[in-house]
Design a protein around this nucleic acid. Structure first.
Lengths: 205, 205
DNA sequence: CATTTTTACTAAACAGTGTTCAGTATGTTT
DNA sequence: AAACATACTGAACACTGTTTAGTAAAAATG
């Protein structure tokens, strides 16, 4: 009897439809405008139905968060084939920022908004997406160490420092914390600060 | 006739009472729980009254944001008397993080939440608080350059890079984006990453 | 002092939010 | 055909930010 399997498939289908609608609305109108009722409208079901597939709004956001990580990882893929490890690292850093600029709402749910982390917290699971992406960075840092570009050291510590800088720079920009500068000065400052960080790494790490 | 002056004072008083209540509730219950109605309850006025003193909720948040910057600046004050410029810089960095950990809600409104920046945007003003604090950092970086600890360079670019790292590191922690590590490993990683950044600066900048 | 005008304030409503629950209609099993 | 399980929804609850019409007190004016 394939009924159980079909039901399983249908359940999975509905979950996917909800998440797709959520992501669609989220990317289009941002976090503020994303409501359970809007998602329900989009998929042409009642709001209550969503609660049959997700515990709460945070869980829906967590699913969107997971999908967004898939997208970022996909965009990182071609970079991995760059042979020079330092150039690979720099290109990854640049990609992190351009991804954020091109998909500000996705960046929000991935790295800034607290909601998706709350479901993770209460589930007491490890943050798989975070671990995976961080490992990716650690690997590249390890390559830099192996190639003698960086000194011998804990690659996780170095990766943490590098991620911090790139993230900080990006988050400050996305959240408009560089609005004390004119548009031109801000662009110039960001560009130069990024380059300075790269040269500093090459010299000091 | 001092009536106009008294009215002015009363108006200012009411504004202060609203902001104080907002900050109080904000620090106590966080951004999510801060509502106009809660503020109104606290000061024992109707919600509509708040709109006689502030354009909208964002403007109230901007006032809280300003007050929070006052508090941070106050905590930075004693650090400024440290004679060694590099030690001063490092201590400032540490303070940025401990402030965030001890006042997560204030850190939120100062550097993460978009709301207060929106009122600034539509007022088309410069972000005075941001400019002031950034200048503080630039000054210390300039001292490091003068002392020969850093090479001759644009101090704003260097300051931008340093702020990015410290902010990134802090924001990732506050927003639970290091939950792929155990509590101990996370603490260790943050500590080491901070130290690594300091030594890298000293060597490479 | 009496009257007009201005100021300060609020009750009530509007349109929205996340979430829950009783009730229904359909599909599946016995 | 009867019993049960599943999938779904309308309506409600308790909230949210914000606006507006109306009121009572204070100030200014004649």
């Amino acid at each position: 009897m394939g009924i159980v399997e079909r039901k399983e498939r249908e359940k999975e289908d509905m979950r996917r439809r909800i998440v797709d609608a959520a992501q669609h609305l989220f990317v289009q109108n941002g976090f503020e405008k994303l409501s359970i009722r809007a998602i329900a409208d989009e998929i042409e079901y009642s709001p209550a139905t969503i609660y049959l597939y997700f515990k709460d709004k945070s869980e829906v956001l967590y699913a969107v968060h997971q999908q967004a990580f898939g997208k970022l990882m996909q965009e990182f893929q071609p970079i991995l084939s760059i042979s020079d490890p330092f150039e690979k690292l720099v290109t990854m850093g640049r990609k992190y920022t351009t991804f954020a600029v091109q998909n500000p709402e996705l960046f929000d749910v991935m790295f800034i908004i607290t909601a998706p982390m709350e479901t993770l917290d209460c589930r007491e699971e490890i943050w798989a997406e975070g671990r995976l992406s961080f490992n990716m960075l650690v690997l590249v840092v390890q390559e830099c160490i192996n190639a003698g570009i960086f000194q011998k050291q804990d690659p996780e510590v170095a990766a943490m420092m590098i991620w911090s800088t790139i993230h900080g720079y990006t988050a400050l920009f996305i959240r408009k914390r560089m609005s004390m500068f004119s548009d031109e000065r801000r662009a110039e400052l960001m560009h130069q600060a990024f380059n300075l960080f790269c040269t500093t790494l090459k010299k000091g790490l």
